[in-house]
Design a protein around this nucleic acid. Structure first.
Lengths: 253, 253
DNA sequence: ATGTGTGAAGTACTTCACAGCC
DNA sequence: GGCTGTGAAGTACTTCACACAT
């Protein structure tokens, strides 16, 4: 059990690479925008630009899902939206609980991108008795004591932890014991979970530290001998959004 | 300019792999905890467990920084804290501005992990005139009109965007024009930036969608022929925290 | 003509396994 | 004897480049 190592020898759920899965939501967002503008078809080049990746990667990604495009033409927007949604499991309804209703928890509760994507905030839970009953984003906050009952009554399998770091592991254990098998963790802690439970982590301070690292490099290169050549080769990261295609996004209030 | 593609031929800033950089903050956090408990040394095995990675990876990561361990003994906690902090550029002070002071922006402003890690919230900026002057986390909110002046007066190079999606690109453009070269984007949009500017993205809805994908697989495998073998091999992701070591974390209020 | 789908080549990251130092 | 540091092997992901369908 401990920190729950796991070697994941070839986890590839059914042949779709994890890196591809992480990009599908990006494509879906771009496609949804096109759909709203009633654009009927897109080329891999256009869609890739909108999603911030390169077109070869996008075509390869789609090839794992099937052959949904038409050579010489492109992809049918509506059809692709459906296929990706289905692949991601967004055609079904996912009740979600948010535990820890501070500023962050409230921000998450208010996040509009939820309902639109198959997610439904089933309940807000907080340890502070003073919060109980107070509505946040139109949903009354419930006390932690009710956690197990809420999970079971609503058939919740996805939990969001937005508590302080000190409470996170305990909340996590209770969520898992009650039947939650996927956790999105905003607390700056490494959570231990049994096999079969997925944890994803979102950590502001880590992101900032990564930015600081690159920022420092930029400053150094500027100062250090400007070998022109070196300066040119310097840092051209920029786009492709975040040093590695991965990573996710919250939503402002 | 467009979506600002970039092939980043061998960006590796100075030989440290991006994947390693992304883990340094994790190690740093674990080490800081050990330091607070006055633990003098750690083995790669122990530290790896605390950080949620495996020990071979950790040793390899550290080998990119130098030979800071002692064979047969382990790593000196204080010394490593210093070396990693320096490598990440945390020994200097990074003034940061947060734009968009809704629930999320407020949550970020209140995040304690800031000051402790070399980051300082230099200013909070919001487009709503009604917010101007109101203190959030003890810092008075300033109006967007002041953005350029704030950036320049404080020498800010890192900006956090927590505005609604619609405002993000415009805010981003202004930040970049004013001199910001690293952006942490919480708005669910792909930002276009010129070369030399780093963008990292944090997106709640993408994380949830990735969880939903795996959640769906779990359900499917349960139902589908339980080839015992298949069920056993099933999904053993779990720990290693989030399908790929990467990703970051916000902090609750 | 145009743009998809994909083997093949290239690159990045991880894990193994063990020599070498304490 | 214990634990680091690292070449070498293995795996995962990306990019190229072009055959092939429309």
């Amino acid at each position: 059990m401990a920190t729950g190592r796991t070697h994941r020898p070839a986890t590839r759920s059914r042949g779709i690479p994890e890196a591809t899965v992480a990009r599908l939501p990006l494509y879906l967002r771009a496609l949804t925008a096109l759909s709203e503008r009633s654009v009927p078809t897109v080329s891999s080049e256009e869609l890739a630009a909108a999603a911030g990746v390169n077109s070869a990667k996008l075509r390869k990604d789609f090839s794992y899902l099937g052959s949904y495009g038409t050579r010489g033409v492109g992809y049918d927007v509506e059809y692709l939206v459906y296929q990706i949604s289905r692949e991601l499991g967004l055609t079904q309804d996912w009740p979600v609980v948010i535990v820890g209703i501070g500023n962050l928890g409230a921000a998450l509760a208010n996040y509009g991108g939820f309902a639109s994507r198959g997610f439904r905030v089933a309940a807000l839970i907080d340890a502070d008795p003073a919060m109980a009953g107070k509505p946040v984003a139109g949903i009354p906050v419930q006390h932690t004591d009710e956690l197990e009952k809420i999970i079971q009554d609503n058939g919740v399998s996805i939990g969001v932890i937005a508590t302080p770091a000190g409470a996170a592991q305990q909340v996590c254990d209770r969520l898992v014991a009650a039947g939650v098998t996927s956790i999105l963790n905003f607390a700056p802690t490494v959570l231990s979970v049994p096999d079969g439970v997925d944890v994803r982590k979102v950590d502001l301070s880590i992101e900032l530290q990564i930015l600081a690292f690159h920022e420092q490099r930029k400053a150094g290169e500027e100062a250090g001998a400007g070998t022109a050549q070196q300066a040119a080769a310097a840092r051209s990261d920029a786009a492709d959004q975040g040093p590695d295609g991965d990573v996710p996004a919250v939503m402002p209030a």
